[in-house]
């Protein structure tokens, strides 16, 4: 071929710049509509609100890239929050309301998240049941369990513990709160793992063609299982950051988080059928979703009740752009 030595044409793809462009436009629009928008308080507020979904969405990026899906993360978070509060409250009489109880509560959250993720992963990989079905089932189970634990009401954290635990959400260093710091750390690690490790490469290979991965001696089931386990662990981390915010859990906790996380992943340019994923894109996706809600609250053009409608439209638009990028 005569073009064998020509350099690769570096085409700017809509799938790459699309999400960035959308984010920039949102920021500009926000700054024009409300002078407080770019203020320190609002920016940290947006970032902190993004953190829960964001931490989960980073894990979801790996699951989706490897060709899977997890619908259970929202109710999993609610269940973990409920479990965590129950355990901590029950330890207060014997151990007193102190830091050790909170640390035990955090450990419970991490272990419960890991176990829940592993359970999803084992059902999917060992029994070969569709991820959609397994996680639809576990979504219902966890949601129901937290309602049962709370006896239909709300589980509240012991009052003394609550004030001890609150700094995990409200405190921070140099004015940056802990959720934002944890989110940033998770994102950096996630990006490196996706981009430059064998695990990330294997996720993309499995998602783009599971048969090829299998025939290439990739340990397909183990990699898959690890994506669900990692996601479960991240749900645990997100819950640890979330519980001190309200100090309670109910059947409404974490409602629709799974959809927001999946939406953020897709808006960020990860392919829903798997095979290609990028963590930084997911971060942009999360920010876009949070910013829309934030903007609607700050301005009075559009009712905040239409938040869901606008988010929905953006998700559909993102997928349309993805397809155009592919056709080219």
């Amino acid at each position: 071929m005569s073009d064998a030595t020509a350099p690769a044409p570096r085409r700017i793809r809509m799938t790459v710049i699309g999400p960035i462009l959308a984010l920039v436009l949102l920021v500009i629009a926000g700054a024009l509509m409300n002078p407080n928008f770019l203020g320190w308080d609002n920016v940290t507020n947006v970032l902190a609100r993004s953190a829960f979904i964001g931490i989960i969405a980073v894990g979801m990026t790996f699951v989706i890239t490897a060709g899977g899906l997890d619908l259970s993360v929202g109710s999993m978070a609610a269940f973990i929050a409920g479990l965590m509060i129950l355990v901590m409250n029950s330890l207060v009489p014997s151990m007193g309301a102190g830091i050790p109880v909170i640390l035990i509560g955090m450990a419970v959250a991490l272990l419960a998240g890991l176990a829940a993720g592993l359970l999803n992963g084992i059902l999917i990989t060992r029994l070969g049941i569709e991820a959609f079905i397994v996680t639809l089932g576990s979504m219902g189970i966890y949601r129901s369990l937290v309602t049962w634990l709370a006896d239909g009401g709300t589980l509240s954290l012991d009052f003394t513990l609550r004030s001890l635990y609150q700094p995990v959400y409200y405190g921070g260093v140099f004015g940056i709160t802990w959720p934002i710091i944890v989110f940033a750390v998770v994102v950096v690690i996630g990006e490196v793992v996706m981009r430059s490790t064998a695990f990330g490469r294997h996720c993309a290979a499995i998602g783009s063609n599971e048969q090829v991965a299998k025939y290439s001696s990739v340990r397909v089931d183990r990699v898959r299982l690890m994506t669900y386990a990692a996601l479960g662990l991240l749900v645990g981390i997100a819950t640890i950051m979330y519980v001190p915010r309200l100090g309670s859990a109910s059947s409404a906790t974490g409602m629709l988080w799974e959809l927001e996380a999946i939406a953020a992943v897709i808006i960020g340019g990860t392919v829903l059928k798997g095979g290609f994923g990028r963590v930084w894109g997911t971060v942009i996706g999360v920010l876009i979703l949070t910013l829309i809600g934030n903007l609607l609250n700050l301005t009075d053009f559009v009712s905040p009740y239409l938040n869901g409608a606008i988010q929905g439209a953006i998700i559909v638009l993102a997928v349309v752009l993805q397809r155009e990028g592919k056709a080219r």
């Binding site: 064998a198 490469r201 294997h202 290979a205 783009s208 063609n209 048969q211 090829v212 025939y215 990739v218």
Partner: peptide
């Protein structure tokens, strides 16, 4: 359908089997 990832580049395909 079993040998190569058609949507990926040469490098990623080449090293997939011996990535370690």
């Amino acid at each position: 359908t079993r040998g190569l990832l058609l949507g990926k580049g040469l490098r990623e395909n080449l090293t997939l089997q011996a990535l370690s």
